[in-house]
């Protein structure tokens, strides 16, 4: 959960990008890093394999500046989506304040989305959390590709009660990236107040 330091007047919140391997989590965070004003972003740390797959996490601190006297900062993390890195995923979720679930819209990746969504719920449980308790936003990524599941169908399966805001995205082009980020940041700060 968020760290609030009343003495040094800092609020740090943790946002985790979750979802199946190759879904575009790292691409999201790299796009954010590339576009943000240098004065508000920290260093981007990627613990990745030789082939650029996330091994442990990507990390990017983003400084919102001072709000009502509190220096307000978001820590963005991605998890490794590959199934066998579950121990790492579980660790990254510790203390999460908000989740972006990046789904891969490609038809052949449909099951991986479901699996990852299940896995998210299971890992939250390990930290005594659940989807109802942590703000979450969905991102339907890779909308530029030809063979994709319709948004209706993705909604039916991941968001049947329309509990979560969702955004369509093409992460490498930045489409939907900041929209998603803005929404989760707002929800996280709302949950603090």
């Amino acid at each position: 959960m968020a760290l609030i330091n009343y003495a040094s007047r800092e609020i740090n919140s943790k946002i985790v990008f979750y979802g199946p391997g190759l879904g575009g989590k790292t691409t999201n965070i790299k796009y954010v890093y590339a576009k943000l004003n240098p004065s508000i972003k920290g260093r981007l740390i990627s613990l990745a394999t030789e082939l650029d797959r996330t091994l442990f996490f990507d990390f990017l601190p983003v400084d919102l500046g001072t709000i009502k006297g509190f220096n307000t900062r978001f820590h963005l993390y991605t998890v490794p989506g590959q199934v066998f890195y579950n121990a790492s995923r579980k660790l990254i979720l510790k203390g999460v304040d908000g989740i972006v679930f990046v789904a891969d819209s490609q038809i052949e990746r449909f099951d991986e989305n479901l699996e990852s969504f299940d896995n998210l719920q299971e890992n939250l449980k390990a930290h005594n959390l659940s989807l109802g308790k942590v703000p979450m936003v969905l991102q339907y990524n890779k909308r530029d590709l030809p063979n994709i599941t319709s948004v209706e169908e993705l909604q039916n399966i991941l968001n049947p009660r329309n509990e979560y805001r969702y955004f369509e995205a093409v992460a490498p082009q930045g489409i939907g990236v900041f929209e998603t980020l803005k929404e989760i940041c707002k929800q996280v700060l709302k949950a603090l107040a």
């Binding site: 609030i4 009343y6 609020i11 943000l36 004003n37 508000i40 919102l64 500046g65 709000i67 009502k68 006297g69 509190f70 307000t72 900041f178 980020l181 803005k182 940041c185 707002k186 700060l189 709302k190 603090l192 107040a193």
Partner: peptide, 22 residues
């Protein structure tokens, strides 16, 4: 006491998010 982080905080934060993230 979390009084300092109130609805007002939320409103200002929201504006900042819009400004900095476009």
């Amino acid at each position: 006491a979390r009084k300092e982080i109130d609805a007002d905080f939320g409103r200002i934060a929201e504006k900042e998010i819009d400004r900095l993230f476009g």
